[in-house]
Amino acid sequence: MTDSFTRLFAPIGAAALSFFAAIGRAAIFAGRALLAAVRPPYYPARFVQQLLSIGYFSLPVVGLTALFTGAALAQQIYVGGERFNAASTVPAVTVIAIVRELAPVLGGLMVAGRVSSAMAAELGTMRVTEQIDALVTLRTDPFQFLVAPRLLAAIVVLPILTLVANAIGVMGGYLLAVYRLGFNAASYLETTRDYLEVTDIVSSLVKAAVFGFVLALMGCYHGYHTSGGAAGVGRATTNAVVSAFLLILLANLVITVLVFG
C-alpha cells in the first residue's frame, strides 16, 4: 500500500521540488545580477551595445506588430460595437487597449522572442566553450561583464520601445478607422486624447520595464546555466523563450490587477 502510494505521488513531489528549486535558483540569479549591476566596475560600452542590440534593432518588429495590431483592433471594435450601436467607441477603446495591454505585452513578447533567445544562445555558447570560465580566471565577474549590461539595457529600452509601439498602434487604428471605416480624422484624434489617461501611460511603461527585466533575466539565466554542448544551447534557447513568454503574461496579469483592480 505504502509502495504504491509512493510510486503514485513521488513523481509529483519530485516535479514540485524541481519547480520550486528552479524558482529559487532564478531568484538567486536575479539577486546576483542586480547586485552586479549596481557594484563597480561598470561596463558602459557594453551597456550601450546592448541598448542598440535590444532596442534599436527591435524597432522594426515592434513597430510593425503595433501597427497591424492597432488596425486589426479598430476593425474588430467597430464590427463588435455595431452590434449594440457602439461603433463610435473605436478611438477610445483602441487607445485604452493599445496603451494598457497590447503595446507592452505584444512588444514584450516580440522582443522576448528576438532577444531572450539570442542572449541564451550567446551565453550558452560561451558556457559550453568555457569562455565564461575564462572570464573568471581573468578576474572578470561574468555577472558584471555579461549579465548586468543586458539586464539594465532591457529595463531601460523596453519602456522606450513601448512608447513608440503605443504611438504606432494608435496610428494603426487611426489609419484604418479614417481611411476604411470613414471616421472623421480630427474627432478621432480628439476622442483618443480625451480618453487617454496618465495612469494608462505610466502602467504601460511600468509593465514594459518589468517585461524587459523578465526577458533579459530568462535569456541570461538559461544561457548561463547551459550544459551539454550544442544540444544544450538549443534547449537553453527554447527554455528562455518559453519561460520569458509565460512570465511576461503572468507579470502582466499581476500588474494589471494591482493597478486597475
Partner: peptide, 16 residues
C-alpha cells in the same frame, strides 16, 4: 590568487 595565475583552456576559450 587569481591575479597571479594564468590559464590556457583546452579549446582556447577565446572571446568571440
Amino acid at each position: 590568487v587569481r591575479r597571479r595565475t594564468g590559464m590556457l583552456f583546452q579549446g582556447g576559450a577565446l572571446f568571440d
